[in-house]
Simulated assay, not measured.
Amino acid sequence: MTPTTVLTIAGSDSGGGAGIQADLKVFGALGAYGTSVLTAVTAQNTRGVDAVLALPPRTVTEQLEAVLADFAVRAVKTGVLGTPAVADAIAEVAKAGRLPHLVVDPVLVATSGHALGVVAAVERLLPYAEVATPNCAEAAALTGAPVTTVEEMVAAAETLAAAGPAHVVVTGGDVDADGESVDVLAGGGRTTLLRGPRVATRNNHGTGCSFSAAVAVRLALGDPVPLAVDTAKEYVARALTGGRDWKLGAGAGPLDHFGWSPERPVPSARPA
Rank of each mutant, 00 (worst) to 15 (best):
L116K: 02
G113A: 12
G79D: 02
H114L: 09
A87R: 00
T83A: 08
P84F: 07
V76L: 04
G117A: 15
A87W: 02
P84D: 11
H101L: 10
G79A: 05
A87T: 04
D88Y: 07
T83H: 06
A89F: 03
A87P: 01
L102V: 12
V109K: 02
E92P: 07
A110H: 01
V109T: 14
L99T: 08
K77A: 04
A87L: 03
V118P: 01
L108E: 05
G117E: 10
G82M: 06
V107L: 10
V93L: 10
V107M: 07
T78P: 03
T83F: 07
G117H: 09
V103L: 08
T83I: 09
A115I: 15
V76F: 01
A115K: 15
E92M: 11
A91I: 01
V86R: 00
D88V: 09
T111P: 06
A89P: 00
K77P: 01
A85S: 12
V93E: 11
A89Q: 01
L99Y: 09
V107R: 03
D105E: 13
H114F: 14
R98W: 14
P84C: 08
H101M: 14
V107N: 00
L99N: 06
R98T: 11
H114I: 09
V86N: 15
T78N: 04
L81W: 05
A94I: 09
P106T: 08
V76I: 03
A91S: 08
A91K: 02
D105V: 12
P100I: 14
A110C: 08
V104Y: 11
D105S: 12
L116P: 03
K77T: 02
I90W: 04
S112V: 02
T83V: 11
I90Q: 02
A89T: 12
S112P: 05
L81C: 09
A110L: 04
H114M: 10
V80H: 01
L102M: 11
V80R: 01
H114E: 15
K77W: 02
T83S: 13
L108A: 09
V86M: 09
V76M: 02
P106E: 08
L102W: 05
A110E: 01
A115Q: 15
V86E: 03
L116V: 15
